[in-house]
Amino acid sequence: MIWVETIINGVLYGGLYGLLGVGLALAVGVMRVVNLSHGEFIVLSAFLGVSLVRVVPWLHPLALLLPVAVIAFCLGFGLQAVLINRVVTRPDPFAGILLTFGVAVVMRNLMVEIYGADPRHLQAGHLAQASAGFGGLHVGVLPLLILALSVALFTALQLVLTRTRFGRIVRATADHRDVVRLMGVNPGRVYNLVMGLSLALASVAGMLLAIRASFTPYSGVERLLVAFEVVVLGGLGTFWGAMLGGITLGVAELVGLRLDPNAGPLYAHLLFLVGVLLRPNGLFRART
């Protein structure tokens, strides 16, 4: 029974991992930009959550998801418009990698300067401890909520990309950034919106993760690592793949912790390594 519970919790937790990665997958898929500051933005949104809780302590942290996502959207939009669009047309992919690496370093130090280096976390009150029982199984209410939210966001993203005019423009821009200009579309503006969306999704993951685990200004690297693993396991540029990749990692981590409480995320990383060796194109490659 305890193993079933472990796996269920792993799946619930994995939805969150998927959410960490999907923003990164979106930016890579549309702009071919690997945003190395993705992890820092995840941590920054957690800090924004902590600050906002102090301003409006009577609100539940989950109610702050939306305002933080809006702020993250604006930051992503600005980051792309002011910095990344300058390098995105270059044939050399290292320009974007170096630029976002620099952004990550600056952000990390700014966060230390502003918030200090102490570990923090977001308090979710008794919701964090509440659990629901199904036929003898005990499952946390918060993880259930988190998975539901992740699935809802994935579905929404998928619908936006496949069914709307905006989604059509995003896919077309990803295919041929020059040809869309012939239809009156400015690719730079599309990129701004996509980076905004990418970081808004990351910020939701960052807030939810901050309820589960403590974080410091230096946690960005770990978050980025998980996001990378999710994207690569899922298959570059596919969104449901990222979700499934996240769930795979989540289950591996919790099963590993059950076997060896000191392991931390070791088993998830090992699984990633095996996955990449066996299926270098991702476990869940699908047609976009």
Partner: peptide, 12 residues
């Protein structure tokens, strides 16, 4: 645009 259907290509 390979990721768009025929009709979506036309709509672009």
């Amino acid at each position: 645009f390979p990721s768009l259907t025929v009709e979506e290509n036309l709509m672009m």
